[in-house]
Simulated scan of single mutants.
Amino acid sequence: MGRKAFEEMSPYWPTATGPLADAMNEIPKAVFTQKGFKVPPAASSSPAAKSWAETRVLDGDLAERITQLKQETGKPIIAFGGAGFMRSLIGTGLIDEYNLVIHPVALGGGLPIFSGLTKQLDLKLLSAKTFPGGVVLHTYNPA
């Protein structure tokens, strides 16, 4: 995840309860950031807080760090972050699958994640799932 997403999520999840909280607290985490960021110490001694406190910080070249992370054993990597982090991640060309969630709300603004591409990014639709309330999840692979 990006540094800003980590800073927003890490105070909440260690004390949250329920199935989603359990998953968020058990998965290994890596924060991609510019040099100098330090993960703050755990706010409590709970196992969940320690999990967030033991997050790895990966700085330096994003493409190199993603390549190294993809070579490790484990489950698929899921990226959380804001538009800036996603633009940087998309720019590496190392994303294997895009899950784009469309909400039925027109805000009239926002930060695009596909701006600044240096070449055309062709995507192949794998699936589309509609949820109650009109939210739609589109899953794509790079073509």
Results as ranks from 00 to 15, higher is better:
T15C: 09
A16T: 07
A16V: 05
T17W: 05
G18P: 08
G18L: 06
G18V: 02
A21Y: 02
A21K: 03
A23H: 14
A23K: 14
M24N: 06
M24A: 09
K29R: 12
A30N: 14
A30D: 13
V31L: 01
F32G: 03
K35W: 09
F37S: 08
K38F: 11
P40T: 04
P41K: 00
P41W: 01
A42L: 00
A43T: 11
S44Q: 03
S45H: 12
A48R: 01
A49W: 01
T55N: 04
V57R: 01
L58H: 05
D61G: 01
A63I: 05
R65H: 04
K70R: 06
Q71T: 15
E72H: 04
T73Y: 06
G74I: 04
G74T: 07
K75Q: 12
A79C: 11
G81E: 03
G82W: 02
G82A: 05
A83K: 11
G84L: 13
I90M: 03
G91E: 01
T92N: 09
I95D: 04
E97F: 06
Y98P: 04
Y98L: 06
L100D: 15
H103S: 15
G108H: 05
L111M: 14
L111H: 15
I113H: 11
F114G: 05
S115F: 09
G116W: 04
L125F: 07
S127T: 10
K129C: 13
T130P: 15
T130R: 03
P132Y: 04
V135N: 13
V135Y: 03
L137I: 10
H138W: 12
N141V: 15
A143I: 11
